[in-house]
């Protein structure tokens, strides 16, 4: 028996106290992560007029209030529209760039990739203020197209990253085969590469939709009366009244997010997109 086998055998059968402590610790961290997220659910059904815990009674009135307030519905519509259009545009731009970065070798490729990822760490508050300064003489403030550009910038790195990850797994031989059989570069991309990239594109689309739908800091500089996204409208509401209406909206959003997570997990495996 080799030494490493002996080692792993001595560890394997019984969970050591260290391993049990680690599992307990991980459970505590998961509890910490889940706590502020799931605590909004019971409060959504509270009959109290404030966000007090525990709720003193049960009622649906905050859901009724949510539906009756036109501004939330309108804002949700704009957010959804913005998220969908920004995602489609970012996916196109991101997948094209991914093909360029993976299938072609050229000097400065790694640097270019880093540059393409900068929106991930560039301070959102600076980008938002900068876009506002740039847009105001162009008349793009409080304008859908201005918002779209901003949302494309922040969602693009996610689309690029997931596209890159799947493209690395697509067998180059398949593209070569299409090419040798007489398909030109565009037809090869359209009929071979693109269909094979589908899992990555799906994952990218999910992330992009969520990032855009939740975007707050940049949007706050560019939106305004008549053009409000849901996070902004929710924030505005909490400025004036901290009642469970906001918990009701949060609960609806949580349900939608959970469904999205389950779908993407079933379709492509969320874990794969990160490792």
């Amino acid at each position: 028996m080799s030494s490493s086998e002996a080692l792993s055998n001595s560890h394997a059968p019984k969970a050591t106290s260290g391993e049990r402590a680690l599992s307990l610790y991980v459970c505590l961290i998961l509890l910490f992560l889940a706590l502020p997220i799931f605590i909004v659910v019971p409060l959504a059904f509270s009959s109290d007029a404030s966000l007090s815990f525990p709720p003193h009674g049960f009622s649906f009135r905050w859901f009724v209030n949510m539906v009756n307030r036109q501004e939330f519905l309108r804002a949700a519509g704009l957010s959804a529209m913005l998220a969908v259009v920004a995602t489609i545009c970012s996916l196109i731009v991101g997948s094209l760039a991914a093909v360029g970065l993976v299938r072609y070798h050229f000097p400065g490729r790694d640097t270019l990739l880093m540059v393409f990822m900068t929106p991930l760490i560039f301070p959102a508050i600076v980008l938002g203020a900068g876009l506002a300064l740039m847009f105001s003489p162009l008349g793009l403030l409080r304008n859908f197209w201005g918002l779209l550009l901003a949302h494309m910038v922040v969602t693009f790195p996610y689309c690029l990253r997931t596209s890159l990850a799947t493209l690395h797994e697509v067998d180059k031989a398949l593209e070569e085969a299409a090419y040798t059989l007489g398909a030109n570069r565009w037809r090869t991309f359209r009929h071979v590469t693109l269909p094979l990239m589908r899992p990555g594109l799906l994952a990218g689309a999910t992330f992009s939709l969520i990032i855009s739908f939740d975007e707050f800091t940049i949007t706050m500089f560019l939106a305004g009366p008549g053009l409000m996204t849901l996070p902004l409208e929710m924030y505005n509401y909490t400025e004036f009244s901290l009642d469970p209406t906001i918990a009701a909206i949060s609960t609806v959003l949580l349900i939608i997010t959970s469904i999205a997570i389950v779908i993407i997990e079933k379709l492509v495996g969320l874990g794969k997109q990160f490792s």
Binding site: L35, P36, I37, F38, I39, V40, L43, L51, F53, I210, F213, D214, F216, P231, M234, Y235, T238, L242, I246, A247, S250, L253, L254, T257, A260, I261
Partner: peptide, 14 residues
């Protein structure tokens, strides 16, 4: 994937 606003509301409740 959970909105930052939702999480801040959650902390307010906690």
């Amino acid at each position: 994937m959970v909105s930052i606003i939702v999480r801040s509301i959650g902390w307010t409740i906690v």
